[in-house]
Amino acid sequence: MTQQAAALQTYNNELVKCIEDLHSRRDELNRQINQEEEERERLQHDIGVLTEKLSRVNDSLTHRLSTRATLERTIAESQAAYTKILESSQSLLSVLKQEAGNLSRATEPRRRDH
């Protein structure tokens, strides 16, 4: 019976060791799970912050793009109007020079033919 008791004690010791090993593995797994849950919470928080920031940047960008389009339209219209003013000024100058020439000829004393 002593042999059986010794064998039983050996099995008991191995069982206790296996159970303690399982407890250790479970504790390590719990530690890893807790770390990953904390990391998930941090990441979810970061995603929320970044999503909010992305929304603000998108709103700002939309506003700036609209403003740029308005400025580009205003510049194009102003340049077209300025070009028309230059063309009109050139036409006016040409007409004035022609009229001044006509007036000069009209006011010159007439030469008498001999």
Rank of each mutant, 00 (worst) to 15 (best):
E72Q: 13
L61K: 01
E72G: 01
S91G: 02
R105C: 04
D113T: 15
K84F: 04
Y11H: 07
E99S: 07
E39W: 04
S94I: 02
Q79W: 08
E72H: 08
I47G: 00
D113Y: 13
T107Y: 11
L86N: 09
Q90Y: 02
T51W: 02
S66A: 08
A81T: 08
T2L: 01
L65M: 10
S89G: 02
E14C: 01
N58S: 04
N13C: 12
E108M: 09
Q98P: 01
P109F: 10
V16L: 04
V16Q: 00
G101H: 08
N58E: 04
L65D: 03
E108Y: 14
R25Y: 06
L92A: 10
D113A: 15
G48D: 02
N13Y: 10
M1F: 13
L103E: 06
E77D: 14
T62M: 04
M1K: 07
S104K: 12
S88V: 14
Q3E: 03
D46V: 02
A81E: 13
V95W: 03
D21E: 08
I75V: 15
N102Q: 11
D113R: 15
C18I: 14
A6M: 02
R40Q: 11
C18L: 15
L50T: 04
L29R: 11
T67N: 12
E41T: 13
H23T: 07
L43P: 01
N34G: 09
N12H: 12
N13P: 03
T83L: 09
E52I: 05
D21P: 00
S55F: 06
Q9I: 00
D59G: 00
S78T: 12
L43D: 00
L8V: 09
L93F: 15
L61M: 01
S66G: 08
Q90F: 12
L65H: 11
L61S: 05
L29D: 05
A7I: 12
T70W: 10
